[in-house]
Amino acid sequence: MTTSATDETATGPRIDPRLLEVLVCPVSKSALVYDAGRQELLSRKAGLAFPIRNGVPLLTVEAARSLTDAEIGKL
């Protein structure tokens, strides 16, 4: 069971690193940090985490969640 779970994350659609290079935070236009585990793109400056669903980054304020102070501190 555990292997199938890991397989799923490993074979699921991954974001292309070359796409990541051209993306910035839509709010602050600053660089994004890629969290591969949570499949999120983090903007320290705007304090927002943008989700990646099925390999597609959702870079809108509506889709984002606010980062906690602890999370911002770690960036």
């Binding site: 659609p13 796409l19 290079e21 051209v22 993306l23 839509p26 980054p57 959702l58």
Partner: peptide
């Protein structure tokens, strides 16, 4: 693999891309 959800009013792309 080159798909992004974004808003025309706040483009999520780096300068001179």
């Amino acid at each position: 693999e080159w798909a992004v959800v974004g808003d025309e009013e706040a483009l999520p792309f780096a300068a001179a891309t």
